[in-house]
Lab assay of single mutants.
Amino acid sequence: TIDDAFRAIERAIQAENEGRYREALKHFLDGGEMIVTAAEKEASQKVRNLLLHKGKEVLEWAEHLAEWILE
């Protein structure tokens, strides 16, 4: 659900702030994927587009974090 997705993102932010970057990455990926999944089930085109945009933002952040971890 969207609530689960945002809880995962909150955990990711907390982990990132505490320097637990790999854990943060996992939570960002989980949250982003949950948002995209919820968007695919959404009946309203406007809400679907907003959710897809937010999911994409979260997944892009996860990608940047992963690249930073690997440096």
Rank of each mutant, 00 (worst) to 15 (best):
T1P: 07
T1Q: 07
T1G: 08
I2Y: 06
I2M: 08
D3T: 13
D3I: 14
D4W: 08
D4K: 11
A5N: 01
A5D: 02
A5Y: 05
A5L: 07
A5G: 05
A5W: 09
F6G: 02
F6V: 06
F6T: 04
F6D: 03
F6Q: 04
R7Y: 04
R7I: 07
A8S: 05
A8L: 15
I9K: 00
E10A: 13
R11M: 11
A12G: 15
A12E: 00
A12C: 11
I13C: 13
I13H: 04
I13P: 00
Q14Y: 04
Q14K: 11
Q14L: 09
Q14H: 10
Q14F: 06
A15N: 03
E16N: 11
E16F: 15
E16D: 14
N17R: 14
N17S: 13
N17E: 08
N17C: 14
N17Y: 09
E18Q: 09
G19N: 02
G19Q: 05
G19C: 12
Y21F: 09
Y21R: 03
Y21S: 00
R22Q: 11
R22V: 11
R22E: 13
E23G: 02
A24C: 10
A24H: 03
A24Y: 07
L25W: 09
L25M: 07
L25S: 01
L25E: 00
K26N: 05
K26Y: 08
K26G: 05
H27P: 01
H27E: 07
F28N: 00
L29Y: 08
L29E: 02
G31R: 04
G31K: 04
G31C: 10
G31M: 06
G31P: 01
G32Y: 15
E33H: 15
E33V: 12
M34H: 03
M34I: 11
M34K: 08
M34Y: 07
I35C: 07
I35Y: 07
I35K: 01
V36S: 05
T37I: 11
T37V: 13
T37L: 13
T37C: 12
A38T: 07
A38N: 02
A39V: 10
A39S: 05
A39W: 08
E40C: 15
E40Y: 15
E42Q: 08
E42D: 03
E42K: 04
E42N: 07
A43R: 11
A43K: 13
A43D: 08
A43Q: 12
A43S: 10
S44V: 08
S44P: 01
Q45W: 10
Q45D: 11
Q45F: 08
Q45I: 13
Q45H: 08
K46S: 11
K46N: 08
R48G: 02
R48H: 04
R48I: 05
N49S: 10
N49Y: 07
N49W: 10
L50I: 10
L50H: 07
L50R: 11
L50V: 06
L51F: 04
L51P: 00
L52H: 03
L52M: 09
L52S: 03
H53G: 09
H53E: 11
H53Q: 14
H53C: 14
H53K: 15
K54S: 04
K54L: 15
K54C: 15
K54F: 15
G55V: 13
G55A: 15
G55F: 14
G55D: 02
G55S: 06
E57C: 14
E57F: 09
V58H: 00
V58E: 02
L59F: 12
L59M: 10
E60Y: 07
E60N: 07
E60P: 00
W61G: 00
W61C: 08
W61S: 01
A62F: 10
A62K: 00
A62G: 03
A62H: 00
A62R: 02
E63C: 14
E63H: 14
E63N: 12
E63M: 14
H64E: 08
H64T: 08
H64D: 04
H64Y: 08
L65I: 07
L65G: 00
L65S: 01
L65W: 04
A66M: 06
A66D: 01
E67D: 10
E67S: 10
E67Q: 13
E67N: 13
W68I: 07
W68R: 06
W68G: 02
W68H: 05
I69M: 09
L70C: 14
L70P: 02
E71A: 14
E71N: 11
E71R: 10
E71D: 12
